[in-house]
Design a protein around this nucleic acid. Structure first.
Lengths: 220, 220
DNA sequence: TTATAAAATTAAGTTTACTTAAAAAATGAA
DNA sequence: TTCATTTTTTAAGTAAACTTAATTTTATAA
């Protein structure tokens, strides 16, 4: 099934929401894709006719099996490119998303597979998100929790959630990376901000930012 | 000046013809770009209005200074990607053109410059074509001659001319590369085919193919 | 419950990059 | 020079991916 860049981005957006158990409503998609709500309805009808999504008036859309397949392949493209740009060309964590979006759409399967091999079949991109293999199979799911939902203790960053315009370059500025060890010292009652320590340096981060940092407990 | 993929390809096509002193006529462009002659006229009018080309009814088009600038940047993109795909991802000489065409259009200046640095500022792509720098300046021109226009003797390949659908995978099959040393033994009077020797292996190549191999005389 | 705000849809229109088919102009061989 | 072929243009139309503006539907809060 040939799919245009716009269709791939649309389906990938739905996938990203579904995977986090969020509803793919009109406005949400419109804002994620930076298009008008009318354009979303438009596209939804088209894709429903192609059997890629389930769509009923005034309800959030859902991927069909067929649509999921396309979305997984789009994610694969995106995440392999992100990994490649980061590992090979040393683009920073907050640049790779945008750059990948620009390039990815017309990547051939052949090139994609060569990139994957060159990168030695990575299972996760630099944000920690899983990369589907060429059959659309995801690596075994690790269960991380948002840092802000934990009690004081030591944690390792397993994933960092931020898409283009959602969060600023916080993570780049402070060089938070997948694999880093953080110590959660306490959570302030007043505003739910978190006092954390990394490499012996203390800092306070907002609850919102902490919710984007997914971690695993470290037994120390 | 923002330019679409279609516009960039159009201007680059004209540039490629002009640089070889060929006229950028309607049918030529139509066949190079795989679009209808009507689409060429269409685009020509649009680009002339934007001051990117000079266009007069029933005449071949010409790049303006402004248009040349865009074309040079498009060539830079294309050739850097080709180099990158070949050097880093090991795509073969006859694959890089097609793959680069698919990806190149939306490459950001930033990414392009990082690629260039990663590749250590190459002056020529794997076909031997010159890569404009970020200011659109081409490396000093080397003057090669088509192999078929030479007399018997030793030559080094300086450039190989073949675009996507023009020539088959001859060069890949026989692994002719820029830098290779060829010995021209003789040119057959009958069909102008060439008897050449490379690495002590003799072979006969057609005049047409030889015309795509640009060489320098080697003083041996 | 009902007014109001939010979300989604419909309708109409736009731009880009094409297409086909027919007409007109230019070119080139006899 | 003229007639046929080639090339180019014109005209009309299409598909994708949007937009704005108005309308309808749904959700929410008093």
């Amino acid at each position: 099934m040939k799919t245009s860049p716009a269709v791939e981005k649309f389906l990938r957006s739905i996938y990203l929401l579904e995977v986090r158990n969020q509803k793919a409503s009109g406005i949400t998609l419109a804002s994620k894709l930076n298009i008008s709500p009318a354009a979303v309805t438009d596209m939804a009808i088209k894709l429903a006719n192609k059997g890629l999504i389930k769509y009923q008036k005034h309800q959030s859309v859902k991927l069909t099996t067929k649509g999921l397949k396309v979305a997984l392949n789009a994610s694969r493209k995106h995440r392999l490119w992100e990994t490649f740009l980061h590992k090979t060309l040393k683009l920073s964590l907050d640049e790779i998303h945008i750059e990948a979006e620009l390039i990815e759409s017309n990547t051939s399967t052949k090139l994609l597979n060569m990139m994957e091999e060159y990168l030695n079949f990575p299972e996760h991109d630099p944000h920690g998100d899983p990369i589907p293999d060429k059959n659309g199979i995801l690596p075994e799911k690790q269960k991380f929790t948002p840092l802000n939902e934990n009690i004081p203790g030591s944690y390792q960053i397993g994933r960092i959630h931020f898409e283009s315009n959602e969060i600023n370059d916080f993570f780049t500025e402070y060089e938070f990376k997948v694999g880093d060890i953080l110590e959660l010292v306490l959570i302030f009652k007043m505003d739910n901000a978190l006092l954390i320590k990394r490499n012996k340096v203390s800092m306070v981060i907002s609850n919102n930012i902490a919710s984007r940092i997914l971690v695993n407990k470290v037994i120390s």
